[in-house]
Design a protein around this nucleic acid. Structure first.
Lengths: 335, 335
DNA sequence: CTGAAAGCGCTTACAG
DNA sequence: CTGAAAGCGCTTACAG
């Protein structure tokens, strides 16, 4: 059993005071170059590392960022997390991961921890249940404690914090317009997240792009059974020519239902979905998708948060939009 | 701006000493019930929470578990993480996430942090590069510091630590036997992880299940281009009747290549893959898969680690095997 | 240039 | 039953 050497032990070995060792290691101008060298040499020899807990206690910092993730099984959030972690690692910060599983009670519990001083800042994508209930006190509570908060991905909320995400409205607005320009008239939406902020924005973008005589076709349900039923109606009765899918489940479901009912993609039905490229390209046919650059969202959110923590950024709270683009694969091929 | 009330402030308000407050909050028998009540009441009123950093410094614990993840975009690891996080949350522990991206240098850097006292224990799935180079000093270093370590998922290494994973060998052994029993003779493997421990075990399980006159068919490459070529050869020239795929990419690639080259699944080709059920069921046709219970692996690994930390478990280091089973969907349908 | 002292917010043996 | 003191491992104003 080894254990890390402390300042005190180092001081003893060097026959100097703890203060001197501490200052030397921190390159204080108060200390002679000679001493600094001696101290650093021995420290290196013993692989001295300051005890982070002690440093934190002194500085009233934790050196840690709290990230609240609604659903880590969603590969979008997994990638966002990897962007955050990468940035944090570069800055020497630790990332504590909390998973809300979309539940408000979990989120409340996490918020309680966060205000106890576990972290210097918080990145949060607000849970589905919280959005539904519209109860944000626990999040406002974090803000009240002067802990910098940045909203990521789910950014359509009135809160005095920075936000980093995509322009959900625009994505579907432009996707719809683009399909129209290519001659597609009956366009529908399949969504299992219509009750969430990002889902609403996407739907609104679609609606706004529709022209005077166009009809809305929206298959929406968070329950798979009901979504299946509604999507089938849209495909088989309404006979839409294209479907914009707002999330993983609606994308895969539409893809699967077309297969089950003999609709050929893209000949009979065009699809644009929200899935990751690493999956989309393997589907048969490959499915066109909205590239959200999740890694970049994570990096940017972390960057913005760190700047707030370091007070480098005293500007008003800002909304940062990460560019998206539709990657066209076989499911939107026009012959 | 609020900020958490401290013991000292509480003591002042109550006109008692800091020690008394501390003891009262910890239900010390030294303190009179009356005082305990008074103290707790005021503490509740002010929503007092002990400063975790201070508590940690006193106890020389961090209340934190470090999890090293090779690749969070892999939904298997994402789910493992969620199992870990859930268990940790129940035990009042924080999870610090570190992502190695399969690189040894990252892993070394993380190990350095871990031995500095950031965490009370470590859960690690060893990076691909580390496995290739067979250089494990940085991990042994963590163990030398008496920080409990548990290997998860990638458990085929000689190390004096607990291990939690699946029986990779058996999975493919039994899948192969099962196919044989159903009359399938030419069985092949597609894999992009043949150079990793889990990949090797799976391949060995398959080989062992083959009978005297059976031929090996193994398409193996970590490079997609080469894997594509080898898999195509196996499908079109060797004309295997079934393919066991050892990972996400090989599964999806085989699925896609069959489509591109007009092989019908399952009529011409049967597939069993390593993908998650939430995806498998949506594929066209749906693809049979090995259910690894990643959430359970995460929970178990965290549980084992916590027991080690609390010295509840003084037994020799153990390997815990989580049960798997093949979920048969359309891609292995026999008519 | 070096060191003694105070303090970050707690806990706990010890004294009274 | 209550409190003063020491200490966890650091940093930093202050004195010399």
């Amino acid at each position: 059993m080894k254990s890390r050497i402390t300042l005190k032990e180092l001081a003893k070995l060097l026959n100097v005071s703890v203060s001197t060792v501490s200052k030397a290691l921190n390159d204080s101008p108060e200390i002679s170059p000679k001493t600094i060298e001696r101290v650093k040499e021995l420290a290196a020899l013993h692989k001295y590392r300051p005890n982070p807990t002690a440093v934190n206690l002194k500085s009233s910092k934790s050196g840690t960022i709290g990230v609240i993730i609604p659903n880590i099984a969603n590969s979008f959030f997994a990638k966002v997390l990897s962007g955050m972690e990468e940035k944090a690692q570069k800055e020497g910060l630790q990332v504590i991961t909390y998973i809300s599983n979309e539940y408000i009670e979990k989120e409340r519990h996490i918020s309680e921890l966060l205000t106890s001083g576990y972290v210097d800042g918080v990145l949060i994508a607000i849970a589905e249940e919280t959005q539904r209930k519209k109860e944000f006190e626990h999040i406002e509570n974090i803000i009240d404690f002067d802990i910098p908060v940045v909203l990521y991905d789910r950014i359509g909320f009135e809160m005095p914090v920075d936000k980093v995400g995509i322009d959900d409205h625009r994505v579907f607005y432009e996707a719809t317009k683009d399909l129209q320009n290519k001659g597609v008239n009956k366009i529908g939406i399949a969504t299992s997240i219509h009750h969430m902020g990002v889902g609403k924005s996407r739907i609104n973008g679609y609606k706004e792009a529709l022209r005077k005589n166009d009809t809305f076709y929206i298959a929406n349900s968070a329950k798979m059974e009901s979504l299946t039923e509604k999507t089938l109606k849209m495909l088989l009765e309404d006979k839409v020519e294209a479907v914009l899918c707002s999330d993983f489940d609606s994308t895969m479901l539409t893809y699967r239902l077309a297969y089950e009912h003999g609709l050929r993609i893209p000949e009979d039905l065009k699809i644009i979905g929200f899935i990751r490229g690493g999956l989309a390209k393997y589907l048969t046919p490959s499915v066109s998708y909205v590239d959200q650059s999740p890694h970049k969202i994570g990096e940017k959110a972390m960057e913005v948060l760190i700047n707030r923590i370091n007070k480098k950024d005293a500007t008003p709270k800002t909304k940062y939009i990460i560019e998206t683009n539709v990657v066209h694969l076989e499911s939107t091929r026009f012959d």
